Amino acid sequence: MSLPQPVPPSWKDLGKSSNDLLGKEYYINGASLEVKTQTPSNVAFKVQGTRDSKSDAIHGDIEGKWTDKVHGLTLTQTWTTSNVLRNQVELDNLMAKGLKLDLATSLTPDKGSKSAILNAAYKQSGLHTRAALDVFKGPTFTADTVLGRDGFLVGAEAAYNVTGGNITRYAAAVGYNAPEYAVTLHGLNNFKTFSASYYHRVSRDVEAGAKAIYDSKSTHGGVALEVGTKTYLDSSAFVKAKINNAGVVNLGYTQSLRPGVKASFGLAIDTQKLNETSPIGPAHKVGVHFVFDS
């Protein structure tokens, strides 16, 4: 008798280890601040703001999240400086074990634009499937499924326009997850874009990863390649570095100053323009990010 299989990652999380390594914690577009607080009544507040170094524009939002773990209910409300109101209601394991339902809505009062997306996710041993209905856009029905067994993963996604009666998007992926490494291959955008990602935990303190993307419709052609690494200096600090085939180097440093206080610094250097300035601004970018979590 085979052992029970673990729940595989969702479609959007296929290749997550590599994507996080190469995409997160590089703060290079200005200054940002994030403040998190928690009340005794299970209400979490989060305020975050960003000042873009290119446009000098300041964007921010305030979020309140109430959670009832006993009944699997979560309510999240967000108000942004762009005057966008977002609401999300989540029901987890309420109707059936492994089933999660959520309704996400947004409203922009001054523009009159609105959206509503109904999501459902079902997780069981060896299976992770999701479905989403965009009520106002199309309406469009999107579904994806990931099957996993002994580390091997197979997934597919498709979007269907209910009004037009046609499939508007489809994609597929295969991969393999092991405790120390992961490999994922994607065929996206109706198989017009292909990507391959690799992640390896070299040791307890060192991680490495790479990602290659080929877009058959790209006017430049060729393959976009990016490689990176993450090294833990100690229990409270780590550094990250990555470089792509365009010669852009990104560096990141994150330091936990004290419990609940974290600072991150980022730098991007275009090695082909070390003594130049691009037409739209500096060729090199810097940024800083602070987190206060009580």
Rank of each mutant, 00 (worst) to 15 (best):
G49D: 04
T219C: 05
A159M: 05
T142Y: 06
Q124N: 08
S82G: 07
V261K: 09
L153A: 02
L251Q: 09
P4V: 03
N166L: 07
S125C: 02
H128I: 07
V248A: 07
T254C: 01
Q48H: 01
V239C: 08
L153Q: 03
Y198E: 04
H220F: 07
F45V: 02
E207A: 04
P179L: 14
H71G: 11
K217L: 06
G155W: 00
K137P: 00
G187V: 07
F136V: 05
A208C: 05
H289L: 06
A172C: 11
K97V: 15
L101I: 12
V288H: 02
N250H: 11
R169N: 13
H186V: 03
T81F: 05
F45W: 13
S10N: 10
G260S: 07
T168G: 04
K36I: 06
E180G: 02
I58Y: 06
N177W: 00
L73F: 15
D150K: 03
L153N: 03
L33T: 08
L251S: 10
I117P: 00
K285R: 15
G281V: 04
L101M: 14
A158P: 03
L94K: 14
A57S: 08
T50Y: 00
K273P: 06
A57C: 03
A173Y: 01
S195T: 09
A121F: 07
N161P: 02
G247V: 13
T140V: 12
S235F: 14
N93A: 09
L133C: 12
A212T: 06
A224R: 08
L274A: 06
T76G: 05
F292P: 04
T163H: 08
N245D: 15
E226I: 05
D13P: 01
Y198K: 03
V135S: 11
L21R: 02
E180R: 15
G252Q: 06
S32N: 03
S113Q: 11
E90G: 01
T105N: 15
T78A: 01
E276R: 03
E34S: 11
T37Q: 11
A246I: 06
Y26I: 06
R149D: 09
S10C: 07
Y160G: 03
V89G: 11
T229V: 05
W66K: 05
I213V: 15
D102W: 14
Y170I: 00
H186I: 00
A208S: 03
S2A: 11
T254I: 05
T277N: 08
R169I: 00
A178F: 09
K230T: 08
F292C: 07
S235G: 10
K240I: 05
V291Q: 08
N93F: 06
Y214N: 10
S2Y: 08
R86A: 08
R51F: 01
Y181Q: 00
A121H: 05
F136S: 06
E90I: 12
T76E: 15
T74N: 10
A96F: 06
K54T: 13
G23E: 02
N177P: 06
L188R: 14
L233Y: 13
A210S: 14
A173W: 03
L85V: 14
V261A: 14
